[in-house]
Every structure is written in structure tokens, then in C-alpha cells.
Nucleic acid binder design. Sequence first.
DNA 1: TAGGCAGAGATCGTATACGAGCGTGCATTG
DNA 2: CAATGCACGCTCGTATACGATCTCTGCCTA
Lengths: 254, 254
Amino acid sequence: MGTKSGLHQRQYRHQLDAPASLPVGKPRQIFEHLQAAIVEHRLVPGAKLPEDELCAFFGVSRTQVRSALHALAHSGLLTIERHRGAFVAKPSPSEATEVFEARALIEPHIAGLTARRATADDIGYLRDHVRTEHEALAAGDISKSLSLSGRFHIAIADIAGHELLGGFVRSLVSRSSLIIALYWRNRDTTCESHSHTALIDAFEAEDVTRAADMMKDHIVELRDGLDLTERNAPTTSLADLLSSVESASQQQSE
Amino acid sequence: MGTKSGLHQRQYRHQLDAPASLPVGKPRQIFEHLQAAIVEHRLVPGAKLPEDELCAFFGVSRTQVRSALHALAHSGLLTIERHRGAFVAKPSPSEATEVFEARALIEPHIAGLTARRATADDIGYLRDHVRTEHEALAAGDISKSLSLSGRFHIAIADIAGHELLGGFVRSLVSRSSLIIALYWRNRDTTCESHSHTALIDAFEAEDVTRAADMMKDHIVELRDGLDLTERNAPTTSLADLLSSVESASQQQSE
DNA sequence: TAGGCAGAGATCGTATACGAGCGTGCATTG
DNA sequence: CAATGCACGCTCGTATACGATCTCTGCCTA
């Protein structure tokens, strides 16, 4: 099937593309368009996505919009409430914690695989990527910087060659972007790309253990850049509480 | 939000229910019905699921059936081919390998959490569950036994209380059922429930490390019960190659 | 004046209808 | 007789229409 030989012909897309389950076509384009908008923080958590407006914007019928919306909901980027509509998800602090716990579990393993499999070309690609990240940072484009940082993790997952875990990473990275929009602490943005560079060094040295450890530390570092104290969600402000979407539908504990 | 207090009032559903993303209603029922049929091997891999027949069976319109079908495709249980229809997925050996690699990574972590959090009631529930598994085995009901075995892992994930990783486990267990249908070796079915009992003992002792190690071994044991040699998919016969569904759409390495 | 209720508007859920792509069988031709 | 082209039918993709539910606003009443 060319899983191993495909390594040498990697396409270096590394985009946040839609899962393979939804077929090519307009719904997929809508999915990716909306996903990009959410990941790049142009659509903020809690924002409503009325079907009619999306229909008008994309020039299609509600059928396709709904298909994309449901796929995004399945990816955890949207919450759909019956007879109310689709909203950009607002992960609670506990959900955010879970996302980073999952990343701290999965991505080190991925990094280990990458350290084993990365070719010289892959290393070169990753270094280029980090360079682009630096440029975005230097230009003060925080949004682009964050987006690129996410894609870096996806690139690593792609090199690891594990389709399944790679899909998990894609999903987790997307949701992380949402979490950052909500709980970001606004400081030491720069330390990240250093971690990235060090990570690449570990890949180049084919040091599986070090790569895994560094990735683990990096994820923890990312999480520590967030303010996930519970006070954020339940009692920030009245306005927030009223527009709060997640408390109604996410908890299925009844 | 009662995430911690909910532990004491656990409902012990532990079913293979649909992800929280798709709203309650008929589509969810259809989803769960089909999922159950697939997991219990009543719908074999490669089987076609024509929308019209499903509409007739469930007494609803195509809209709802399609919604459920797409959700199942997103879960990896179905593959939908444009203008061809929905088919029960036929995971390739490499995909199967990935599923068990992912389980070997995630479930030991889950088991560690479970060892920390399991209450006496939880332990009791798990022991009851194993007892039921034994009964199914004694009755020679292989299908039910496999199904229960899967639910055991889901029960553990529920006790662990990690919604996100729990969702991953649910998905992986479902797909494992599909994999077992394809690559099962037909022997030593009984060793499993011993592993389960030993696992519960580790939970009861609150021995995190041992629980994780045992789960890891158990997953490896499960995988070793399969015949995942590559010869199965690529070169069995021409007929197989022609009816092979997964090679066309799953591999995006073009 | 404050609270509750009812109606209108808007949005979503579901069903149905039509068009497009694909598979199959037959007819035709070399 | 075999191979190829064509046309038919079937299934799915998409659009549209209708009904259900929610929300908002205005009015009525205490």
C-alpha cells in the first residue's frame, strides 16, 4: 500500500484537513473553511453559526451546510443544540484539561515514532516550518503564529505515519486552538519555537526517548501557558453565563 | 458540574452509545442500532447498507438514515463511497495494527486512572460483568462474549472518568470488534476473562502501575489473537481485490 | 410598574422531489 | 464468438417545501 514508501514522497500538506470519512465535495470545503476560521480565531467560541447565513455565504443549500456542521460537531469544534443551532464550542476548563492530558499521552508516543522515521527531508521541512513560525512571531502576527504552531504538531504526526493517532492529534490540536482562545495567558509566546527546535534536534539524532520526553515537556509547557482554574467558566460574568453553551448539553450525567 | 460527585452515582450503562455530538432523536437510535449490529457481527465487514432499505426498516426518511450513516462513517465503522453507498468498513491489517497500537497506548493510561478512582461499587460492578462474560462463554455464545468483553473495556474507561479518552476507547473498541470479525484466529477465547479478573484485582489494590502494565499486556494479548499478516489484504485473490473497499478511499497517499 | 401570557417571526428538523453518477445487461460489430 | 459501445435502471447527492419548536416582543392584568 506504500505506507512505508510513501514516506519518501511525502506531500508536506500537513493541513488541518477534514477526516477521511466525509467524502470530497462541497461539504468538505465548507468543513475546512469553517475549521480554518475557528482555528484561526476568526470565529470565537460561543459564536452562532446560522445555517441560512452559511448557505448564503457558500452559495449552497442547507443540506450541505448541515452536513459540514454535523461533522464539525463530531470533531468537537461545534456544539449543536436542538432547535437552537450550531455554536462554536466553548470547552470547559475540565474539558480543556482533558485535551491536554490526551495530548501529553499521545504526542510523546508520536514524537518517538517520528524520531525513528524522519528522513533528512522531513527534518528540513520541519526546520523550514519553525523558521516560518519565527517570522510570524517577529512580524507580531500572533494568530498566524499560533496556527503555525498547531500545524507543526500535525506535521510531526504526519511524519510519524500513524494514520489513526495522527487523526487524534489533528482533532486535539484543533480543539487546543479553541482552548487557547479561551484560556490563553498572554505571555511568553516565544518559548515555544525554542521547544520546537529542540524537538527537531531530537528527531535528527533519532533519539526516541529524548524526543518523547521533550514532547511531553512541551505539551505540559503549553498547558501551563493557560489559566485553567475552574473559576473561569462558572462565574466569569453574567453576560458570559447567559451565552454559555456548554453547560446545558455537554454534561450527560443525569 | 458534578463530574466528581457523579462517580458515586454511576449509572453503569457502559453501552457503546453514540458520541455526544449527535443530538438525541431518531438518528441517534438508528446509529446505535446499526452500531450494535456491526459490533455483534450481525453485519459483516463489506456488507452494503442501502439507504432505502434502512428507511423502510426504521420507518423514517432518508434524511435521518443518512445522518446516522455519516456519523458511523466518522466513527470508522462505515465507509461511504460517493454514488455507491455505505459499506461496513473492512479495516486493512495495517489499520488494524494501528487500532491496537492506539489501544496499547491509551488503555493502560486509562487503567491507571481507574485504579486510582474505582470505588468498591465499581469493583463490584466489574466483577459482576466478568461473571456475565463467563456465563456467555460457558453457554458457548461467542458473539455475546466478544461483545461483553468490549463493554468491559468501556466500563473501565467510564470509571476512569476521562470523557475524551473514554470516547477514544469507545471508538477503538468498536473498531476492534470489526477487526476481530476479519482477523480472528479462533482459539484460546477463554484466556481473556482471566486477564479481566486480574485487572480488577489490580484496580482493587489501587496499584496504578500494575493495572497499567496488565492492561498493556492484555491489549497485546488481544492483538496476538489476531492474524494480521499483510498477506490477507493485498494478495488473497482477485475477487477480494475487486471487492476491496478500503484500498480506494482510506489511503490518501496519492 | 412589574410580571405573565400570547402571538408573530425566525430557525431548525424532517420529508419529499428531482437530477447526477454508476453499474448492468443487451445489442451491435469486427 | 468475443469485445466494445450504449442505454436503461438503480442508488445516491442536492435542493426545496413544510411542519415543529424556540425566542422575542408587545399587551394585558394584578
